[in-house]
Structure formats: structure tokens, C-alpha cells
């Protein structure tokens, strides 16, 4: 395996469509919940320990080689609102395109054939990580980091926030990231015995509600 592949996968410039999404930051900014670096950190911490943890578990399980179609069902079960399911599949499809170009392999081909409209993004990312020769924990890290780097980048654009402050927020969340990635990987390690029920199912109802509302905004900068 090459650990360096993780840098490629986790790079914000990896061309998998993430740049057009705010991870719920746009409605949070509009509602006044994110207005500076302090509130951005609060938002990111909440997102990381809920949506981020769920994604980390799914990605780690997919990277461990568990059936991605079962994991895709598990992702649906953990994503109650249609807007976020649509977003996750759209981003999954885009991740699939980029992954097949960068780390081609039969597992990616099989999942693409079974889910031509896209599987949930963390599942695709996990299969991509496997195809790149990475470990489940690596996949959990990549997906958990993206879970907070997306909103942080979006907040810089939406609030003209100082980019140094936004990056410092991410750095301050490093210990939380370690914990969430490890929790995701640990849960994934139990899937072989316990099935997908072993995976985290934390939820963030406010993110669900605002995502659904945001999808109906007539004017917005970000797709989600």
C-alpha cells in the first residue's frame, strides 16, 4: 500500500464535485448560526460527530471490502431526508468517475454498474480507497476530514471569513477528527460479525431539516 495515496484522495482539489457543496453551511450562515470562526467551529464539531461519524463508518466498511450495496442500503437508512440522499448519490457518482480514472479496478466497475446513478458518496469513497490500496482507517479519515473542510471552505466564500481563521478551525478539530475516524474504523471492524447494524447511526436533525429547506431555495450559491 501507499499511504501517499491518501493525500491524493483527501486533497480538496480532488475533482469529485465537492466544491459546489457547502455541507449545510449555506443555510446555517443564512440563519445566523455560522457568523464567525467560533460559530464555524461549533458547526463543524457538531457535523463531524454526527454526519461525519456515520460517513466514517460507511467509508471504512467499504474500504474493508464489505458488500457496497448493503452499505449503500445502510447509508439510506441513516439518511432520512430526500435532499441529502440525492446529494449523497450525486456526489457518489462524481466520486466514482474521478476514482475510476485515478485508481481503476473491478470493485469500482462493479459498483458503478450496479448503481449507475450513484451510490452514497462515503461508500464510493471507501471502495476507491480500497482500490488505491488504502486501509479502512484511511478512508474514515478522508471522509471525516472532507465532512468539515467542505463547510469551512464554503464559509470562507459566504462570509468572506479570514481563510487563516477557517484553516485554524480545522486544525483545532484535529483531535476530534482522530477520534471520529478511529470510531468509524472500529465500528467497521465489527461489521463482519454483527452486520451493518454495527455502524454508527448518529443523526443531526437540524442539518436534515435545513438541507431539505435549502434544496427549495430559488437563489443559492451552493448545490447543498
Amino acid at each position: 500500500m501507499s499511504r501517499a495515496a491518501l493525500l491524493v484522495l483527501a486533497d480538496g482539489r480532488f475533482p469529485a464535485g465537492g466544491h459546489a457543496h457547502s455541507g449545510g453551511a449555506e443555510p446555517a450562515v443564512a440563519a445566523g448560526h455560522i457568523k464567525d470562526a467560533v460559530t464555524l467551529e461549533r458547526f463543524c464539531r457538531g457535523r463531524l460527530h454526527t454526519a461525519g461519524l456515520v460517513a466514517a463508518g460507511l467509508a471504512a466498511a467499504a474500504a474493508a471490502g464489505h458488500d457496497p450495496l448493503l452499505l449503500d442500503d445502510a447509508a439510506d437508512a441513516r439518511t432520512p431526508v430526500p435532499a441529502l440522499r440525492t446529494t449523497a448519490r450525486k456526489l457518489g457518482r462524481q466520486m466514482m468517475r474521478a476514482a475510476r480514472a485515478t485508481w481503476p479496478g473491478p470493485d469500482l466497475d462493479a459498483l458503478a454498474a450496479a448503481r449507475p446513478r450513484g451510490a452514497h458518496q462515503p461508500v464510493v469513497l471507501g471502495v476507491a480507497a480500497r482500490s488505491a490500496g488504502l486501509e479502512p482507517l484511511d478512508a474514515a479519515y478522508a471522509v471525516a476530514y472532507e465532512n468539515i473542510s467542505g463547510p469551512a471552505t464554503a464559509a470562507v466564500r459566504l462570509l468572506s471569513l479570514d481563510p487563516f481563521d477557517a484553516t485554524a478551525v480545522l486544525a483545532r478539530l484535529a483531535a476530534d477528527l482522530d477520534r471520529v475516524a478511529q470510531q468509524g474504523a472500529d465500528a467497521a471492524a465489527r461489521v463482519a460479525l454483527e452486520g451493518t447494524d454495527a455502524l454508527p447511526a448518529a443523526s443531526a436533525p437540524l442539518l436534515d431539516i435545513t438541507a431539505e429547506a435549502h434544496a427549495a431555495w430559488p437563489v443559492r450559491l451552493f448545490a447543498s
Binding site: 466544491h19 462524481q94 468517475r97 466564500r157
Partner: peptide
């Protein structure tokens, strides 16, 4: 296609949404 405040990214650096 929605571009997240960055039209040139969607046509040059990350073209996945447009290709789709």
C-alpha cells in the same frame, strides 16, 4: 449545473458535474 460560487472550477478544475 450549480457551481458553488466558482464557475471556472466547474468548467476547468472539477468538471464532473458538467460531464454528468
Amino acid at each position: 449545473v450549480e457551481t458553488g460560487a466558482c464557475p471556472h472550477t466547474a468548467i476547468r478544475d472539477d468538471i464532473s458535474a458538467n460531464l454528468e
